[in-house]
Design a protein around this nucleic acid. Structure first.
Lengths: 348, 348
DNA sequence: GTGAAAGCGCTAACAG
DNA sequence: CTGTTAGCGCTTTCAC
């Protein structure tokens, strides 16, 4: 049973429908300018033969792929431990498939992979790229920009030189942090500490900036650097308690960290929020609601971020096609910063 | 600045190297049967021009894509909340890129997407598929098998009819469960409860089976159905405590659930493991080590599962290519069940 | 060993 | 409106 019977081609459909290849092509691609009866005949032939266009052949002539790469750099994969990227991927996937684009996932593990990714992107396999790389020293973004592929970044890239006009989508980390700290201050707290994330990531750095904006020249001992993990949150909280036993509020850089901090606080007999109020960041569903007490936190809509990233890229690609391949980052491309919202629960 | 300067083609390289397109092609594809000096000349030209082969053109003739789809069905995406898929994806990605294959991620959100995915797979965009669908009633696997694309499943598919010869990679859920329960029994526990996962997933069902194998005709009241979440674990534990206050051990279907159970236990003043011993499943790093006390659990190597899935598929594709497109699931394709290992920590 | 030539399946002018 | 005609960039016989 040599069932391989290679897929039917345009030619086959044309023959069966008694028309030319060109007509079939037109129908398959929307059917504009083809008279109804013919359209119908072709549709039927397509149906009967189970015709599916060969993407490779199509790409070869159109130079489009209807595919977008999502690049997640190694240091981030770790972060898979929280649902952050999964949610973002979902948002991206939804938007992409809504526009008939495929998602090609590129995970990198260190330097060697950088070259591979750059080559792949430069190789014109995909129409554009969505890149997550939020570390100050990451060479990947540079390589990718070099590859000349339209790109949108997830999160503000951490380049020292702010001159390049990159398009990115980010949450208003700074503003969210300000809101959190202001809430705490408004509650009458005066010794407000901050447990940061890894400061080589812009999100963490921006949250720290927000904290500082509100706190002014407060005791620097109130700031402890941590790493976005629950374990890190615990360690940081212990250090904090040691250093500033009079701390009466904590703004943690994310919910995971906040959860760790709360655990230590209760272990040490401090009541939350009576003795120490705690605010987190993210509003990750399983975490923020599961802690005891449930976390007051700064919500960012991760899935929406993903969706917007995809939308931005797709729009750019569209424009590029229309413009006759000019389409660099013209005026209408600008970073998008999504607002955050404070979600009040029981911890502050 | 019309910087578009379309990528250099084989032709361009050939001209620059002073050879024919065919020769360049040979060199680019391994360079067998081309004399050293020429190889060198071509390599140089490639380098200078920054030539990267056009995959679409290549696929058009070879009918290979060096791309594999990973399909994750809706009900699973939820599970993104634990790092399970992320790890699996990593394993897959590593293996795939090691063999120069791309990973095309297909996330589905309900029925409509099924058709889309089936069409995509049938459309011959990828050489094979890796599919995660572990629910009893999921129609997707059937559709995919219908599409005629070589496929390897992640986890034992939950079909009632076991007749189809599917290839899948799974952990030894049943064996792991047996080990867990035997450990508990060996500790002298007699009232060993089981908090299950969602029983429409084969992993959960298999773990329950393992539990029952060891427990024989124990009190059925000791089994509580749950959902793999911490919150579910808490609810289940409360119900259990109500129903069987004399429970002295719990085997939870995963670590998240175990963590929830432990929390409730301590809340109710039962010491772990003295009063109630607890064993989890998965050995998810952030969870199992963070709980207090750290969880004794059944480890499965998720990343390795992913890697093996990819390896299996790749091997099959290779064989298929060699065989001249025959390569159905011949004898050498069989499900792979990976062993689990008991990790002893403090909770039992 | 190396080159010439034929196409893979499709789209995009261009005629008619 | 519809058909005809060129290729897109690459691999692959088949001669040389």
């Amino acid at each position: 049973m040599t069932e391989t019977a290679s897929r039917p081609t345009l030619e086959a459909v044309a023959e069966r429908a008694g028309v030319s290849r060109a007509t079939v092509s037109r129908v398959v691609n929307g059917g504009d300018g083809v008279r109804e009866p013919l359209v119908e005949r072709v549709r039927q032939a397509v149906e009967e033969l189970g015709y599916v266009p060969n993407q490779a052949a199509r790409s070869l002539v159109t130079k489009r792929h209807d595919a977008v790469a999502v690049v997640i750099a190694e240091p981030e994969t770790r972060v898979f431990a929280d649902p952050f990227f999964a949610l973002q991927l979902r948002g991206i996937s939804k938007e992409l498939t809504a526009h008939d684009n495929q998602l090609v996932l590129l995970l990198t593990e260190g330097r060697d992979d950088h070259a591979r990714v750059a080559r792949y992107l430069a190789g014109g396999h995909v129409d554009g790229a969505l890149v997550f790389s939020l570390h100050l020293d990451d060479p990947l973004p540079g390589l990718i920009q070099g590859a000349g592929v339209p790109t949108v970044f997830g999160g503000r890239p951490g380049w020292s030189d702010g001159t390049r006009d990159v398009v990115y989508v980010d949450s208003d980390n700074r503003g969210g942090a300000r809101d959190a700290v202001r809430l705490l201050a408004g509650l009458g707290r005066t010794r407000i500490a901050h447990i940061t994330g890894p400061l080589d990531q812009t999100s963490a750095a921006d949250r720290l900036d927000g904290y500082r904006e509100v706190m002014g020249d407060a005791d620097p001992g109130l700031v402890v650097e941590s790493d976005f993990t629950p374990g890190g949150g615990e360690r940081a909280m212990r250090a904090l308690l040691e250093r500033c036993p009079d701390v009466d509020a904590v703004f943690a850089a994310n919910d995971l960290t906040a959860a760790g901090a709360v655990r230590v606080l209760r272990e040490r007999g401090r009541r939350v929020p009576e003795d120490v109020a705690v605010v987190g960041f993210d509003d990750m569903m399983p975490v923020a609601e599961q802690t005891d007490p449930p976390l007051t936190t700064v919500r960012q809509d991760i899935e929406e971020m993903g969706r917007i990233m995809a939308r931005l890229l797709l729009r750019r690609l569209e424009r590029r096609t229309a413009d006759g391949a000019a389409g660099g980052a013209d005026g209408s491309d600008a970073p998008v910063v999504l607002p955050t919202t404070l979600v009040r629960r029981a911890s502050a």
